[in-house]
């Protein structure tokens, strides 16, 4: 941010290519689902889609810090794709649960969401993602207004926290390593935001140094 050199910025065509490449890369893990799924295929599908939801969520939350550190403001232009991909994986994750655990029986799905707290938390996160996905367009930003849109999209922090609870809650003492690692990464990404906000708050308000006065451009009021 403070570096004098402005970092490389892609042109419109380059940006489009980068975006397409990024989307293709993020969809690549889906190819794994067409390979050998091991002895417990439903569990594999569920874990794989769940893990990639979290990976993409963390990646989405990394855009702002990366942008601040590198000064590469164009990174922001990739965030919408990452967020929508996160939502797509979350939907697949839920679909695998609905299909393999309950054979798509609505009643059974609803009961399970109520009965198992870690599923309720995961489901809450999914529901909260829905308005964000629906407002992921320039039109929605214009319609809501930038400030309100931004306030709405801050719920991604809550979604992240719910995702971490969901992951931790389904683990047991012998399997805490991955959920704890993901939680730590999330905490770091959220802490950076708190830090950035505090820094902004403590920075002196723009004013005039040493009691100097604004320059008067006109000695007299101009004629009307």
């Amino acid at each position: 941010m403070n570096s004098a050199r402005t970092p490389w910025t892609p042109g419109p065509t380059q940006l489009l290519l980068i975006k397409l490449l990024l989307i293709a890369l993020c969809l690549l893990p889906l190819a794994r689902l067409f390979g050998d799924l091991g002895p417990n295929p439903p569990e594999f599908v569920s874990r794989h889609t769940g893990t990639w939801t979290f990976n993409l969520l963390l990646l989405t939350l990394s855009v702002s810090p990366l942008r601040a550190w590198t000064g590469a403001h164009w990174l922001l232009r990739l965030r919408r794709s990452l967020g929508l991909l996160t939502f797509a994986y979350a939907l697949l994750h839920f679909a695998s649960f609905a299909l393999f655990d309950h054979e798509l029986a609505i009643q059974a799905i609803a009961t399970d969401i109520v009965d198992r707290p870690f599923i309720a938390v995961g489901f809450a996160a999914l529901l909260l993602m829905l308005p964000l996905a629906l407002t992921s367009s320039n039109r929605a930003i214009a319609l809501l207004g930038g400030r309100r849109w931004q306030e709405l999209h801050r719920s991604i922090y809550l979604i992240g926290i719910l995702a971490a609870i969901h992951y931790l809650w389904l683990a047991k003492i012998t399997t805490y390593f991955y959920p704890l690692t993901y939680t730590l990464l999330l905490v770091l990404l959220l802490a950076w935001r708190v830090g950035a906000r505090l820094k902004k708050a403590s920075a002196p308000a723009p004013g005039f140094r040493g009691g100097s006065q604004p320059i008067k451009f006109f000695r007299e009021k101009p004629d009307r």
């Binding site: 002895p39 417990n40 295929p41 439903p42 569990e43 393999f100 655990d101 054979e103 399970d112 009965d115 198992r116 707290p117 870690f118 809650w169 389904l170």
Partner: peptide, 19 residues
């Protein structure tokens, strides 16, 4: 008797898709 975090009413036989 449920586990505190999940029901024990069903199970998935390894290699099968549904419970």
């Amino acid at each position: 008797v449920s586990h505190p975090r999940w029901s024990q009413a069903k199970e998935r036989r390894l290699g099968e898709f549904f419970r």
